[in-house]
């Protein structure tokens, strides 16, 4: 073995040891601070969406109870609204939730619109949208952004101002790359950017509001989803990114899907440039991540009958 090879081997060993050390140092610990619901409580039956306001209140969409519920910061139920149906303020398949500018925005999946409630859960109106909605997020400074799903016009995120007026659009996919391949989870950043995580593709990206992609990176080795055929449609089978969230320091949290070692539990933490700065593993699988303005993390447990709130402890 030549000197160069020996040196290379030594360098590799050092790098591997250093990487392991860095990995160990950046594993984030979770401290549970609140539990809402549970197997012996009927507070939640199967929650799907969560949002928080600046006063510490927690808003939860409960798909199995067809309700929007509001809890105080100690987990006590303050109120609930909604029932099964498709009328004003009713839900058939409630999914996502956001709080922005004194309003709670809810998505009922079959409805081409955003259901708007005040912070006391009184139904206000439904903002019409051109297609089925796949997610809603609050925008820093007010207003909301929604991702809409349409085969003819894929890859669109629509922005609304605090009064519900259209305020622009981001196209992150010009034409269809395949059925469902435009499905993303997203989060607007305070610097004007927007982060996307693809459900059926190994991609996390940062975009500017003017429609430029700042960066794109793989978290699972650039794998492609296996496809399956259902009723003649070719559909992706593997999930990559289940949700994406941001803390107040601009760190990006990416919840891994089927491709992760621990599906719905492994979270990769990235900096605003897309570099990995840490990782954590949730005790139980969750479908989503949500941070409040104090950087508490909210996730699902017990198949949706429990909502957990955690403090993140960085080493």
């Amino acid at each position: 073995m030549g000197r160069k090879t020996r040196f290379g081997g030594g360098l590799l060993a050092w790098w591997m040891a250093a990487s392991a050390l860095v990995q160990a140092q950046t594993t984030v610990r979770l401290e549970e601070v609140l539990t809402i619901g549970g197997p012996d409580s009927d507070a939640l039956l199967q929650w799907t969406g969560v949002a928080t306001d600046g006063e510490g209140a927690i808003y939860v969409l409960d798909a199995m109870d067809f309700a929007l519920k509001k809890f105080d910061s100690r987990g006590r139920l303050l109120g609930r609204t909604g029932r099964q149906g498709q009328g004003p303020g009713e839900f058939s398949t409630p999914r996502w939730l956001a709080f922005a500018g004194e309003r709670v925005y809810a998505i009922d999946q079959p409805v081409f619109g955003l259901l708007v409630f005040d912070r006391n859960l009184a139904y206000q109106k439904t903002l019409p949208l051109p297609a089925m909605v796949d997610g809603v997020e609050a925008r820093p400074g007010g207003g909301v952004a929604v991702v809409v799903s349409s085969y003819d016009s894929p890859g669109r995120i629509l922005f609304f101002d605090p009064d519900g007026r259209p305020a622009g659009e981001l196209r992150y996919m010009e034409k269809s790359e395949g059925f469902l391949l435009d499905k993303v989870t997203f989060i607007p950043a305070s610097d004007g950017g927007i982060y996307l995580g693809y459900l059926f593709q190994d991609k996390v990206e940062r975009w500017t509001l003017s429609g430029d992609r700042s960066w794109s990176r793989h978290l699972f080795g650039g794998k492609k989803s296996e496809m399956t055929t259902v009723e003649g449609f070719s559909l992706p089978r593997d999930t990559f990114v289940l949700d994406i969230a941001l803390d107040s320091r601009g760190r990006i949290y990416v919840l891994g899907g089927k491709q992760a070692k621990n599906r719905g539990r492994d979270v990769v933490i990235l900096d605003s440039s897309g570099g990995q700065v840490g990782a954590l593993t949730l005790p139980e699988p969750s479908h989503c991540l949500h941070f409040d303005d104090r950087d508490y993390l909210y996730v699902r447990a017990d198949q949706g009958v429990t909502l957990k709130k955690y403090r993140l402890v960085f080493p």
Partner: peptide, 17 residues
Amino acid sequence: GRRSRIARLQWQGFARH
């Protein structure tokens, strides 16, 4: 067990509606 209690809770809610 925990899973069994969750199953009962979710079925009750589902059936009620």
